[in-house]
């Protein structure tokens, strides 16, 4: 009874919180509410017996994504930026920016479509909501029970944990492509050639011994936790994604606290680290074709070993990618080479 009540409150809270995220005037507050939303989603997944994705959502969905949002909001509003980009922009643009930034403080947003658009929208959106609501309430008993099939084939999958078996064996092709998405995202972000907005953070955190102490304390713990999650993934909730998320968060923490300088996008060490997971996965997937005749069809004898190797490299790449999406500072053209040599050593 009590647990049913808890589920009902949680289920009701989620759409309301989403509504608040979208209507709060202050953008910072919206992002904080978004992080709370992500944590509640993770909680509801824990309630739904999905600890794997609850872990991933808490780390990636709420944590890293939330930090990305905060970082961007901070970059968009309020702070006077370094004049790094001033040279290649027109005067008019600079003036317009001046006008916008003249009122620093709360980053607010009230721009909406006119009222009649909003009113006209409510009808189809409500209709969609009703249709979808009816659809999910009236789900029939499905004719196919994939859960049963997955558990029947768990023996042959090489691992003992259902989700890992699906991710790295039954539907490993999806996972392969998904790692490709991560790599693609990094390339796409780098192609934008963003200015160095985050340079300030390292300076800001100078003279904060408490933070540095905490990060020093957390570093070994997070490495142990990441390793544990990776190792545990074969038998119980955990695996490359959760481990990569924890280690990626550690990377973000190290850079934001100023203990490690942000890596540069053209550091070849970083590039290799980012690509190695995808490359090893693709390479092993293709190589086993020679033995078994199909892409990603591991030979039965070595399935477990191959999956562990793939997961190990995936963890490295996922962690680096998540950190890179957040903190990589692309080199400015003029100073690129100098800093490059300077920071070569940080990469390890």
């Amino acid at each position: 009874m009590l647990s049913l009540f808890f589920d009902a409150v949680l289920a009701l809270a989620l759409p309301l919180l989403a509504w608040r995220v979208l209507t709060t005037r202050d953008l910072y507050r919206a992002v904080i509410l978004f992080i709370a939303f992500g944590l509640l989603v993770a909680l509801s997944w824990a309630r739904l017996d999905a600890p794997d994705i609850a872990l991933a959502e808490a780390a990636i969905g709420a944590g890293l994504t939330g930090a990305l949002f905060l970082n961007t909001v901070g970059g968009l509003v309020g702070r006077k930026r370094s004049p790094s980009r001033e040279s290649d922009e027109s005067r008019e643009v600079a003036e317009r920016r001046e006008a916008i930034q003249s009122s620093p403080g709360e980053p607010v947003d009230e721009v909406m479509r006119p009222w009649w658009v909003r009113l006209a929208l409510t009808v189809p959106i409500l209709a969609l909501g009703l249709a979808l609501g009816w659809a999910v309430v009236s789900f029939p008993e499905p004719a196919i029970d994939l859960a049963q099939q997955a558990s029947d084939n768990l023996e042959a999958s090489g691992v003992d944990h259902g989700v890992t078996a699906v991710l790295l064996n039954f539907r490993s092709y999806d996972t392969l492509l998904e790692i490709g998405v991560l790599l693609l995202a990094v390339v796409a972000v780098w192609s934008l050639d963003l200015g160095r907005v985050r340079g300030g953070q390292a300076a800001l955190s100078k003279g904060l011994p408490v933070l540095h102490g905490l990060v020093r304390l957390l570093t070994p713990i997070m490495i142990i936790v990441g390793g544990y999650l990776l190792w545990a993934g074969a038998k119980q909730p955990g695996g490359a994604f959760q481990a990569g998320a924890v280690l990626g968060a550690l990377g973000v923490l190290l850079v934001l606290s100023g203990l490690v300088r942000p890596p540069l996008s053209d550091g070849s060490g970083l590039r290799i680290g980012l690509a190695v997971g995808f490359a090893v996965f693709l390479g092993i997937g293709t190589a086993v074709m020679l033995a078994t005749g199909e892409l990603l069809n591991y030979p039965p004898a070595s399935t477990y070993g191959l999956i562990i190797i793939i997961e190990l490299f995936l963890t490295v790449s996922i962690a680096l990618t998540l950190a890179a999406l957040f903190v990589t500072a692309p080199p400015r053209k003029e100073q690129g080479s100098k800093e490059h040599s300077e920071e070569k050593g940080e990469e390890s």
Binding site: D49, A50, D52, I53, A56, L146, A147, A150, G162, V163, A165, V166, L167, F170, R171, D174, T175, E178, F241
Partner: peptide, 11 residues
């Protein structure tokens, strides 16, 4: 508990 949607969500 069906692991297939869990894997989809993780992806």
């Amino acid at each position: 508990t069906d692991p297939v949607p869990h894997a989809m969500v993780l992806t």
